[in-house]
């Protein structure tokens, strides 16, 4: 068991966000398989401990740049399931008003969220820019930037960590190593699969953490953010998990060996946390009650999103430029 800085009450809140993320994901996948979705989308299954644990570690004034497997972070930060489902459905009430697809572009600076683009490495320097704005103004705030094992092969990964280290930026880069970049396993796109080791090349701390253990993720990210806010510079965190479904909704992921999936399924992040909570005295009935409330909240969001208006085609050219 991991040392945790969470109180019992906080642990139940964290569990609730994870359940909400899972309930959202299961409903989303079902809807898309029924053909009720718009465009493509990305399952979150297996990533809940990372997205919720890391999101929960943020201070209110911090800024985060999540990616397409970080629904938990979006939710924890204040994007409601209503707005998120409306975004997925391309509705006017979604975060981007139908301009960007699924979780892409779900930025909201009032919530401290920077939206991402499909070129996943690109959030990495943008998030560093936000961190540098805090240094510039002498504010004790930090930025958490997410990327994946695939994007860690890009030049931007190197360029950004080099600059972040050079400038002692209040910046934490979390690499979600979910074993696959679309169809390519980690060992087929890098020689050094221990991604945290790359930190050595920049003279910053590198931490590898069990990405299915929400408390471990929370503790590692919180420590790094606290350090960053106090002027201690950036940290690279690798959170190891498994992408439990295909790259996107259309992808059957036949290239993933069943034994690998089974091994990780036995370490499902929700189950792991449930066992721990039960072992410390939380009743399974209470956990199931939380689950039912999350499912009801998700259902309400789906109904609201499907009933939301489509964007008006007359507005298609609005907003290309800031006024």
């Amino acid at each position: 068991m991991t040392e945790t800085s969470l109180t019992d009450r906080e642990r139940l809140e964290v569990y609730t966000w994870m359940r909400l993320t899972r309930a959202f994901d299961e409903r989303m996948v079902a809807l898309w398989k029924q053909g009720r979705g718009v465009g493509g989308t990305f399952s979150q299954r297996g990533h809940e401990a990372i997205s919720v644990g890391a999101g929960w570690a943020l201070a209110p004034d911090d800024v985060v740049a999540p990616m397409h497997r970080d629904l938990g972070t979006f939710l924890v930060r204040g994007i409601t399931p209503l707005r998120a489902f409306a975004s997925l459905m391309g509705r006017a009430t979604g975060v981007t008003g139908g301009r960007d697809i699924n979780f892409h572009g779900m930025g909201d600076l009032s919530l401290g969220i920077i939206g991402f683009i499909s070129h996943l490495p690109h959030s990495v320097p943008v998030a560093l820019g936000a961190a540098m704005s805090f240094r510039y103004r002498g504010e004790k705030r930090a930025v958490l930037s997410f990327t994946g094992d695939g994007a860690s092969g890009s030049g931007l990964f190197h360029e950004t960590l080099n600059m972040a280290a050079l400038w002692d930026a209040p910046y934490v880069l979390l690499v979600e190593n979910n074993q696959y970049a679309y169809s390519t396993p980690v060992h087929e796109h890098t020689k050094v699969t221990d991604l945290a080791r790359r930190a050595d090349g920049y003279g910053i701390p590198g931490v590898s953490v069990d990405g299915n253990d929400v408390e471990a993720v929370h503790a590692a990210v919180k420590m790094a953010l606290d350090r960053a806010r106090e002027g201690g510079g950036p940290t690279l965190i690798e959170a190891r998990t498994m992408r439990m479904m295909g790259h996107a909704i259309h992808d059957g992921a036949e290239y993933v060996p069943p034994a690998q999936l089974a091994e990780w399924a036995a370490r499902d992040p929700l189950q792991l946390f449930e066992e721990r909570l039960v072992a410390t005295g939380v009743s399974r009935d209470d956990l199931e009650g939380i689950g039912r409330r999350c499912e009801a909240e998700v259902e309400e969001a789906v109904v609201w999103a499907e009933g939301s208006p489509w964007p008006d085609p007359a507005t298609v050219t609005d907003g290309v430029y800031a006024p």
Partner: peptide, 9 residues
């Protein structure tokens, strides 16, 4: 990219 992030803030 860093400049974009600064500009956002």
């Amino acid at each position: 990219g860093v400049a974009s992030g600064m500009a956002l803030m």
